[in-house]
Amino acid sequence: MAKERWTHSDTTVYNIGYHIIWCPKYRRKVLQSPISERLEVLLKEKADEIGVVIETMEVMPDHLHLFVKAKPTASPHWIVQQLKGYTSRILRQEFKPLRTRLPSLWTRSYYVESCGHISEDAVKKYIEDQKRN
C-alpha cells in the first residue's frame, strides 16, 4: 500500500520535510566505521524519541545528510540541536579518539532546507547518490 503523503493530527494536516547537513569539527574524516554505524543507530533512537522520522540518511566520512519529516511544532533548529547534542555526548563517551582529536564533535553550523512534495524525491535521490560520487 502506498504511504500517505500527509500526516494528520487532531487539528492539523501536514507534510513537512527538511534536508539537513552538518559536519564534524574542522571537517575531520572521523565518521567512519564503527563510529558511523553507531551514529546511525543513535540518530534513529533520538529521532524516534522526539517524534521525527528519518526518511533518508547518509553518513559520509566528513559530513552527514538527513532527510527528516517532522511535526509543525518542531523547528529545524530544535531538531538539529537535539540530534547533534545527543549523538555528540554518547559518541564522545564511547570513542576516545573523538575526545582527544576534537574539542567538540560537531561544528556549530548546519545546513537546512525545507522540502515540499515536488522536491522530496530529488532530495532523497541526491542523498542516496552521495556515496556513489
Rank of each mutant, 00 (worst) to 15 (best):
V13T: 15
H77I: 09
R99A: 11
P76Q: 04
L102M: 10
W6E: 01
V80G: 08
E45H: 13
R108L: 05
T56K: 15
M57R: 04
Y126A: 11
E37K: 15
A122Q: 14
K69G: 03
G116A: 09
K44Q: 11
T73D: 13
I50N: 08
Y126P: 01
S75T: 15
L98K: 05
Y86N: 08
T56S: 10
E58F: 01
I90N: 06
R92L: 02
T87H: 02
D48R: 12
A122C: 07
K3V: 13
D10H: 12
T7N: 12
S109D: 10
A70Y: 05
S36K: 11
V30K: 07
L91Q: 06
R27F: 10
V80E: 03
V112Y: 02
R38P: 05
P72C: 08
V123H: 04
V41T: 12
L66K: 09
E94A: 09
M57L: 15
R92I: 03
G17A: 07
L39N: 04
E4N: 10
H19A: 09
K84L: 07
F95K: 07
R101Q: 14
I127K: 12
V30Q: 04
P97L: 09
P72S: 06
K125D: 11
D121N: 13
E58L: 05
E49S: 11
A74G: 00
P97W: 02
T100Q: 10
S109A: 13
R99T: 10
L102K: 06
Y110T: 05
C23F: 10
R92S: 08
L102F: 09
G116R: 09
L66Y: 10
S36R: 06
S33I: 06
K29W: 04
T7Q: 14
L66Q: 04
V59Y: 12
R108P: 00
E4P: 00
L31Y: 05
T107C: 09
L43D: 06
E37P: 00
K25H: 15
K46V: 04
H77A: 14
T73M: 08
E40V: 11
R27E: 07
Q93Y: 07
P24N: 08
K96N: 01
P24Y: 09
E4V: 03
E58C: 14
Y110F: 15
K124E: 15
E120K: 13
W22I: 02
L83F: 06
P61D: 13
V80T: 04
S88G: 07
I20Y: 01
Q93T: 12
T73W: 01
R5N: 04
R132A: 12
P97E: 07
K96Y: 02
V112A: 13
R108D: 09
T7M: 07
M60D: 04
V13A: 09
T11G: 09
I35F: 06
V53G: 00
L66G: 08
